[in-house]
Design a protein around this nucleic acid. Structure first.
Lengths: 339, 339
DNA sequence: GTGAAAGCGCTAACAA
DNA sequence: TTGTTAGCGCTTTCAC
């Protein structure tokens, strides 16, 4: 890497002259500016980012901590964060917590030493189960703002971007009820997460309000064989005619299993799931889905963080919670257009 | 963030004394070391990463440029990179090229200014089509090593990590032939990529060697409606009894479509695909798959890069190409155990 | 219009 | 054993 010093030497001027010339300072003579710029161009000079960071005490880098990058929803959020950040001149440093509290703490500590200006994160499963929040508070106290998305810690004061999980699940189940479904089950492998709980509550509320059936939940663990669990469930509950799947894959598996058992979808049974377009197209009929607009969640989170980072020092912004509205996409695994 | 200077002031010693004490230098008195460490502990001191980077002229950060983070394979490689890097004390800065040459160039330039010590990347689709390599060479000439994985530019001298795409496809098709399949088709939506071409060649070689049928390829574009294309294909070629799917989703869709059309899988038709476990479980029967060990690809790439970054200055390492062996996983969409 | 010098936080060679 | 100093690459204030 070429430095200002080298350019200065070669041009027989001082370092500060070169610096000013490159930064279009008024002070420097036209001719000098021309010479400097020409040489800089030739050597492909670009100011050393690390030196700039040290000098200006900010890195223009955002630390992103996500629990699981193989989760399509989280990957999509990351995509949204990256795009927004890049557009606004920021880089992202990504750490994966693997749903572990320990790794989450470590990532926070490892990056909170000048490497990044702030964090965007989705709380790890273990952290939510143990309800730990000290590490977040400590980081914020160090002067590093945090934006949480999707799974958030309510007792931490920071910006948040969430989805209307409770509400949309409630509406989706209502929609199934209005198809005259009599026995609607709830499938979930995310019951330990804040969002999983919200979805479960939304389901229960709709069912209980309606008052014609009991709640019927199939809860699975990450390592379970979903096909087998779902099949067993269907065999035990032969009269189920509606499914609300709270995770990203059990909806598609539910359709395939139902078909396999000789049911017609959606004539005999309706299925709605939380998933992405690509996965929703892996069954025939395609899964009717609740779209979470993951990219937009990422973009909003990045926007909130960058706004806070670039705020004028006097104006302390209030913490904001942005709710990104979901959309019900009507594919073919339900009878009527949900909305 | 607390600095050495502040600690020094509070302890009434010099900055270098504090520095040395914290770095366990022999020079400093026991008592002083104790006092320094205690205060550092209390203030939660951690050396400023940016200052260290500037001083030591290395950032312990790896730039990762991937074409598409929503591609499950690539996400998994990224996961492998992140894990290996973290374990060895490196951070990763992730940029997404979106399959665009322009964005790839920009990412390279944006990070090659001291932000990272080297790159791990998967060549963008557009770059492969246009066969551009100057930006890679330039980066390497600037002293920043590159490791390429999966899709590589052959004419760039650097470390590479690839999969035996040609070979494994050849063997997979052979395996279908040994099931006595008479008309085996090749489905691909990755035909513009180097890996897609290798897979296609592997298929063709096996078919042509066998000599009993013509090659039969269904090529799709990213934005196509795969279900529709595949269904049309089946309707046109009613006698197809084997499918080799070269991308991550058409295999599952092929199974579902075949079932939908009344075929039995695998009795009437066998299907093998390149995909991940989670996707392979989205059909009944589950898709027989070629596992690419994406995590290991990522780990190998990180290992190669870090080795190069940390090599002693005298020993210039030769460029290595690591081939990560695929595995054929026998699920239920083929008749016999493939191997 | 140009240059010298300080300083961001740190390490390390050298001095005391 | 401890402190002084220089220097990593840059910007910026202040002198000339």
């Amino acid at each position: 890497m070429i430095t200002l010093k080298q350019l200065a030497q070669e041009l027989n001027v001082s370092i500060s002259t070169v610096s000013k010339a490159l930064n279009n300072s008024e002070e420097i003579g036209e001719e000098t500016v021309r010479r400097v710029k020409e040489l800089a161009e030739r050597y492909n000079y670009s100011p050393n980012k690390v030196a700039l960071s040290l000098k200006q005490n900010k890195t223009k880098t955002i630390g992103v901590i996500i629990p699981d990058i193989l989760n399509h929803f989280l990957a999509k959020v990351l995509f949204g964060i990256e795009r927004e950040a890049t557009q606004r001149g920021y880089h992202i440093m990504t750490c994966i917590s693997n749903e572990s509290l320990e790794k989450e703490k470590e990532a926070l500590k490892l990056l909170a030493n000048g490497s990044v200006d702030g964090f965007i994160l989705c709380v790890a499963e273990e952290t939510q189960i143990k309800n730990e929040i000290e590490h977040f508070k400590k980081t914020i106290n160090q002067g590093l703002p945090i934006v949480m998305f999707d799974r958030v810690a309510h007792d931490v004061f920071c910006d948040k971007v969430i989805v209307d999980d409770f509400d949309v699940t409630y509406r989706a189940v209502k929609s199934l009820l209005s198809e005259n479904r009599k026995k609607i089950a709830f499938f979930s492998s995310v019951d330990d997460l804040s969002v999983g709980k919200l979805r479960s509550h939304g389901y229960k509320k709709a069912i209980l309000e309606h008052g014609q059936q009991d709640v019927l939940e199939l809860k699975m663990k990450k390592d379970d064989d979903y096909q087998q669990k779902i099949r067993a469930f269907f065999e035990e509950h032969r009269d189920v005619d509606g499914i609300l799947s709270a995770d990203s894959s059990s909806g598609v598996i539910a359709i395939n299993t139902a078909l396999h058992l000789g049911l017609k979808v959606p004539e005999d049974i309706s299925v709605i799931g939380f998933t992405s377009q690509s996965v929703s197209e892996l069954s025939i009929p395609k899964l009717t889905t609740i779209r979470q607009h993951a990219k937009q969640i990422g973009a909003s989170a990045a926007d909130l963080l960058i706004k806070r980072l670039e705020k004028k020092h006097d104006a302390l912004l209030d913490f904001k919670t942005t709710i990104v509205k979901t959309t019900l996409v009507n594919n073919q695994s339900t009878l009527k257009t949900v909305s």
